[in-house]
Design a binder for these strands. Structure first.
Lengths: 225, 225
DNA sequence: CACCACGCTTAGAAACTGCTTAGAGCATAT
DNA sequence: ATATGCTCTAAGCAGTTTCTAAGCGTGGTG
């Protein structure tokens, strides 16, 4: 679980970083609001811990700008005693929690945990396969060709995924059967042919450029032209 | 706007009460957790301010029991410095905010205002998940759809949270079982299906736009449309 | 050109997947 | 102690997918 800690005071920063790392978090650090902003938008942190007073961009502005960019990462803001007005501003800016310095590290840890632990996200970046106008989204199991959605069953999807991962390569029926069906191709089954047929109906039939090619006696190939 | 203030130390109580009344709040008071509980359930307060250490029922127990009764009134808990462990317990119990003594009255007032501002209240303090008209408050475990409160059990809540955190993604039953139940999906169990069914009855049945979609042979997806 | 192996297509049977309900076993609250 | 509510298992059913099997078309080869 990756965190971003933003703090310009080296000693404090080091203490927080070390403590969090001992608690199994990965920690990125920034001394400066502008760097923090860039990092926060680039990486997908589980949470951001930021000081209020910072060079470059203060915690309040950082918070506001990140929210304006649509970032929903939880933000914990550290404030010094007596910065009451800033806190109020901070709530408006979209901070999720505040912690007043000086604080016990255990409390910081508890808050970070409460901000991050609830449920787990599976993966962040969309996993896509693209070839010849076909887009396959592995995250939501959807397929498009030339912007047109195509509905596949689980088996058809698995077959197309295998073909796309091996585009340009000739794949024999036994090979396909092993990878997509997890079966030995002994039994004179013709499932592969049947499913190639199903796929062609959905992927190739309504489009001029065919992608699934038969290589007589050898197998199939997924390729443009 | 009616508030409940729970505090056993007469001087502090009086100061808070007076300050809030000067700011146009109506204030009910209680010296004791049990009385506070009865009052909180009977009257519909805009917010509750409570000390942690109380006779009868401490702030932590008060909070937990009110939440268990389904009360969603925002709760601001006052803690003395160094009560770190108690604070951590407080988060689990469903408090919305904490304020460490000694505090400036201006800050208490700001927090109470932010808690009572309907609509903005949640987003400022609580950790929320929002999608497709569903609002999930992770701090007090409440869920609304289109402003209508929805009552979920712990397991249903965990499942919905996982779905919402991964909205737009296809989640296979084994994946769901691992994250929400923490079980290996070997044992031909059908809990996931059963709980998807429970959740649909509560989340989708009474609404025209369905959010939980089945992708046959692949899993489930939480998404609008 | 004719034959044969290989691939294509289709229909329907079999298998599987998901939905729903009832109820047993636990835990928790009264 | 009793009651209430939550979690999970189990079983029946409905719908979809997967696969088999058979007939038909086609390309390559003699």
């Amino acid at each position: 679980m990756k965190l971003l800690v933003v703090e310009d005071e080296p000693k404090t920063l080091q203490a927080i970083q070390q403590g969090l790392e001992e608690s199994q978090f990965e920690v990125d650090i920034a001394y400066d609001g502008l760097i923090a902003k860039r990092l926060a938008l680039k990486n997908n942190y589980a949470a951001i811990v930021t000081d209020l007073i910072l060079p470059g961009l203060n915690g309040y502005e950082l918070c506001r700008q990140l929210r304006a960019e649509g970032l929903t990462t939880p933000i914990l803001m550290l404030t010094a005693l007596g910065e009451t007005d800033d806190k109020i501003m901070g709530f408006d800016a979209g901070a999720d929690q505040f912690l007043t310095k000086p604080f016990q590290f255990a409390e910081l840890l508890a808050r970070v945990r409460s901000l991050t632990k609830r449920g787990t996200q599976v993966s962040m970046t969309a996993q896509m396969l693209r070839y010849g106008g076909v887009e396959m989204n592995l995250d939501n199991k959807s397929v498009m060709r030339d912007g047109q959605p195509i509905d596949l069953t689980a088996r058809e999807f698995a077959l197309l995924e295998f073909l796309m991962r091996n585009q340009g390569r000739t794949l024999s029926k036994p090979t396909i059967a092993e990878h997509v069906w997890d079966i030995n191709f002994d039994t004179g089954t013709n499932v592969v042919e049947v499913y190639i047929n199903y796929l062609r109906k959905k992927i190739d039939r309504d489009f001029p450029a065919k992608l699934i090619h038969t290589q007589f006696g050898m197998g199939y190939m997924f390729r443009e032209e």
